[in-house]
Design a protein around this nucleic acid. Structure first.
Lengths: 215, 215
DNA sequence: TAGATTGTTAATCGATTAACAATC
DNA sequence: TAGATTGTTAATCGATTAACAATC
């Protein structure tokens, strides 16, 4: 534990939310064979100011060198540590409809440290089906399986009507984070993280700016 | 056109981004049979302050009544108009993998004013396949079909390596908004809207707050 | 060395909130 | 009328940016 006598202000959530974007861009550059970058280049790529990137990173330490910028490998490692990505997280998908199917089959999770171990569905005709190497489990066994395996994260892909009820069960069983794909606001205790993904909400945000007259 | 002599400050984008959430909650209440609500109730539901809701709405007009609050039907109509949802938008899905399949089959789009007319894929063995009532089109015909039909919005569900190239084609053809599911930052002209949906980015945001020691 | 770029400070800018007169 | 709730103002709070000394 570091100095507990000094009031340490929490790092703004909006800063935390940008770190994964920095990480993604850095890994992209790394895969291109690039070894170093600067706040300027990173900012250009992401459409933000270099000052913002330097300020964001300064919350966590000093990762660069004057004159030369940042070593990509080093910064990637640091960001991974900060975001607690230096471990594998156990993820369950709830709901084996088209979306659950797509999530279970998405290969972007595993190599970024998220291991989908389970997919649950209340439709017993789907139970036993193989989805991306994961076998559909009966909804009845949700609590037992999640508690036993210590699943920390849930991807919630059930109909909106059932999202809150399933959430309550997940929270009670010890899930710490839920990424909700249902078009509904969830209520959870303060120590549980919730992320939202509703494509319609995103589209409705964009239509505001569209020119309705253009074809 | 309203008063063009007075400098009208643009409404903050962060406000626009909350309107779809207000709309979603209002429609939910409406479906529950509720007729009126207040900024207080809406705020409680969405986890934000009543003052913020009133302030946000005040950018667009006066929609409530002292003492009684807001008529849900009326406010829903107003928000729909503001967000340009009083028309049907033509949407194309690009990429007919698992995700494209899920998007084409999602029934949350059509009744909220987004009509998925087309789904494209470069894999000719998929062409002709029926996905949620939409037949897979060859990628070669992207430009011709989108221009002819006046498709305004694209859901981009292609691999990251191809996302920017496809984006360039979409933009050239006149698409005004792109919801990008590929884990990569896109570059577009300023008059084109881009939204991002990368579940890994959202998960990485949440893991920062998780207790790695728990279970 | 000269040029580049960091981390940080202070100023600016913008968003949220508390408070309240108006009024249904 | 009494109670409730709006729309708006001004104060507060927080985030972004410009600028620059430090230094690689």
């Amino acid at each position: 534990m570091s100095n507990s006598l000094v009031a340490m202000p929490a790092i703004p959530d909006i800063v935390i939310g940008r770190l994964p974007l920095y990480l993604r861009a850095l890994i992209y550059m790394k895969n291109q064979g690039q070894l170093t970058t600067s706040s300027n280049e990173l900012g250009r790529r992401l459409g933000m100011s270099s000052a913002q990137i330097r300020k964001d990173l300064s919350h966590f330490g000093e990762f660069g060198k004057q004159g030369t910028g940042y070593h990509i490998n080093y910064l990637v490692d640091q960001l991974r540590q900060i975001l607690k990505l230096d471990q594998e997280w156990r993820v369950a998908v709830i709901g084996a409809g088209f979306l659950g199917h797509a999530l279970a089959n998405y290969n972007g999770f595993i190599h970024r440290g998220f291991h989908i171990s389970w997919i649950f569905d209340s439709d017993i005709t789907k139970v036993g089906e193989d989805m991306g190497g994961v076998v559909v489990q009966p909804m009845d066994e949700l609590e037992e399986t999640i508690a036993r395996e210590g699943t920390q994260i849930a991807l919630l892909a059930v109909p909106a009507e059932r999202a809150q009820a399933v959430t309550d069960r997940l929270v009670k069983t010890g899930v710490q984070a839920i990424l909700n794909y249902a078009p509904i606001n969830l209520t959870v205790p303060p120590d549980v993280q919730v992320g939202y993904s509703d494509p319609v909400v995103q589209l409705q945000h964009m239509t505001y700016y569209l020119d309705a007259s253009r074809s």
